[in-house]
Design a protein around this nucleic acid. Structure first.
Lengths: 152, 152
DNA sequence: CCGTATCCATTCCGATACTG
DNA sequence: CAGTATCGGAATGGATACGG
């Protein structure tokens, strides 16, 4: 699938959207991340998504390494779809979308917190070493010198 | 359009995806944000998107208040599509996607910087008041008490 | 109950042609 | 250059049927 949807876009955002840019993808991942859903029927009931589409999305996530499919031991036990680290690390994308929707479209019912101390957590634009948040208008893109390695 | 794609999802991320979740939407906004594109032909050439789709996306953005259409004064002058504050504030979403794609899919050619001092800028999960970044696995969702107002 | 598979209607998308 | 119109194909949705 990679390289099909957004050909000739040499851009990491486009690469990411190849995997999570289709309809329902980010909402499925959201429920996996923040509701702890792992089973087909949980996603299906919550989202009201067509079953064939949901099956395709889960299959894509497993193939892309965002989720791991674990077959239940006992027969009749349903498979579980659990997020990998690669999948988990999409949290900032979901949270950024949620924050924006909260502010500009329609506030939703949830906010995010650090489970270790209960304090609210937000996505922020920051200089790597600095303290102060950077205004969106001040963030610009710049061509980088050398490419980092990919985590597997 | 709002409420059509993801009905019954009381979730700010779903509200956001109603506006920017369709194919090409985020890449168009990315080029507007970080390449400074404002004209139909600029987006079209860079993305290779079908012209009818691009026209529809730009129209949707204007209707949703993400862009403003400015008609050139002289006849034959093309219209310009410029981001509003509402549109600009999607930068964290784009940057979060880019960072994730860089790390987990395929590194792209750009990184982000603060134009005021040239220092690199990243999206970080942080406690509102604290200093330390929060690990993705420690971020949980929590129902909020009262809903904030929407910025217009 | 947990999924998978299939059929059909609708929507979305891409390529092309065309107009001002 | 900036779109609009059209048409065929792909993706999607809904319903249903099927097997464990």
């Amino acid at each position: 699938m990679l390289g099909r949807l957004y050909a000739n876009q040499d851009c990491a955002a486009a690469f990411a959207l190849e995997l999570v840019g289709e309809r329902w993808s980010l909402l499925i991942l959201r429920d996996a991340m923040f509701r702890g859903y792992t089973r087909f029927s949980q996603f299906q009931k919550k989202l009201g998504i067509a079953t064939n589409i949901l099956a395709k999305r889960l299959e894509t996530f497993v193939a892309a390494g965002l989720m791991e499919r674990r077959q239940g031991g006992t027969p009749g036990e349903p498979a579980e779809y659990v997020l990998t680290q690669k999948g988990l690390e999409l949290k900032p994308v979901i949270i950024a979308l949620t924050q924006w929707g909260d502010k500009w479209v329609e506030p939703g019912p949830v906010l995010f917190a650090n489970r270790t101390d209960g304090q609210p957590v937000t996505v922020q634009l920051r200089e790597a070493d600095g303290d102060a948040e950077v205004a969106v208008a001040d963030v610009v893109a710049r061509r980088r010198q050398s490419r980092p390695k990919i985590r597997r």
